[in-house]
Amino acid sequence: MQAETAGARQSSTPAGILEMRGIRKEFDGRVVLDDVDLDLAAGEKLALIGPSGSGKTTVLRMAIGLTKPDAGLIRIEDKYLWHEQRDGRLVPAGEKHARVARRPVGMVFQQFNLFPHFTALENVREPMVQVLRLSRDEAGSRAMELLRKVGLSEHCHKRPGQLSGGQQQRVAIARSLGLEPKIMLFDEVTSALDPELVGEVLRVLRDLAHATDMAMLLVTHEMNFAADIADRVLMFDAGKIVESGPPSQVLVTPRMPRTRQFLRAVNDR
């Protein structure tokens, strides 16, 4: 029933690379996402802003299958994350199907989550060996190339514990890029960093955004950064998208009072 209605809605929209329809999620009776629709076109850079607890991070976690929605549909390229098509109908599918469906998505976390017992190089190389089935040599040289791009080739044999927060986050970015995702999720990637280390990570992200045709979904509190790289900005509040549009509109001349209030609070920081 629910799948059919959502399916009907889907047919009316152009096919983006990521699509969410009617997403709903509760944690312990608290509504985190309330009937959210979201479309991401191939190559599009989408920034999610809003106060903490408004559901932005949950949207990201759902896009890679870390959190399962209570209701709604998530489509990544031509596959539905938690549903599969059978006899022309969508039926719920399990973890096994989701593992395949979410494969084009990569994610960078606020807390880096590097593997502490691997070196920087191993952190980037091992997923490539395991997932892309590359030889260790081939993966190693590609990993070195990625580390060079994020400016860390001379630190490749250090463990995460020996690197600064900004360096760790750059390794984490390289690690995700290694799997050649079509959609990248960035979850407040500078929030856990000391202020003087934010710049180096943003610079890497900015170069990346301008140089690739990867689609990106970014949760960020850095408004100037969002204005610079985003094609579109979504303003979240209390589990709903309250405003959406190009950064020149949402970030400069917002229509909604809630957005105005939020931006004022951020700029007064």
Binding site: L66, G106, N113, V131, L179
Partner: peptide, 15 residues
């Protein structure tokens, strides 16, 4: 082992 480590293995599609 922190939830973050587990989530990283999922987000990296590791077997």
């Amino acid at each position: 082992i922190s939830a973050g480590q587990r989530e990283a293995t999922v987000a990296l599609h590791l077997p």
